[in-house]
C-alpha cells in the first residue's frame, strides 16, 4: 500500500484514499479541431510510460477530492514528490531535492 502525500491536505495518506488519473502535463488543446488525426492520436493515446521517473496525476478521492500531480519512480513505485495541479513540471534539481 503506497503512502501518498496530498499537497492540499499536507498529509501522508494511504493509497486506498486516492485514485490514479493518468499521466500529468498532457494539456488539452484549446482548439482540438486544429489538430491533425496524428496529433489527436498523440493527445488521446500516446503516453511516455517510462521505466523510471513518471509525472502523473492522482485524485484524493476519499479525502479533499482535489486533483494533484506526483513524481513517482515506476520501478520502485516510490513517490519522489507531489505538487498541486497547475504547477509546472518540477525540474530534475527539484526532484533530487525532494528526495532528501
Amino acid at each position: 500500500m503506497l503512502l501518498i502525500r496530498c499537497p492540499y491536505c499536507e498529509q501522508d495518506r494511504a493509497e486506498v484514499e486516492f485514485s490514479y488519473a493518468g499521466e500529468a502535463h498532457i494539456e488539452r488543446p484549446v482548439d482540438p479541431s486544429a489538430f491533425s488525426d496524428a496529433e489527436w492520436e498523440a493527445f488521446l493515446f500516446l503516453r511516455s510510460n517510462p521505466r523510471g521517473t513518471h509525472f502523473e496525476r492522482w485524485v484524493h478521492i476519499h479525502g479533499c477530492a482535489r486533483h494533484f500531480n506526483a513524481v513517482r519512480d515506476t520501478v520502485s513505485d516510490k513517490f519522489l514528490m507531489t505538487y498541486k495541479a497547475g504547477k509546472p513540471r518540477p525540474t530534475k534539481r527539484e526532484i533530487e531535492g525532494a528526495k532528501k
Binding site: S19, A21, V59, I61, H67, G86
Partner: peptide, 13 residues
C-alpha cells in the same frame, strides 16, 4: 462526477 471534477479542476480551473 469524477470526469466533471477532473475537467473542472485541471483543464478549466
Amino acid at each position: 462526477m469524477a470526469h466533471m471534477e477532473d475537467y473542472l479542476q485541471t483543464e478549466w480551473p
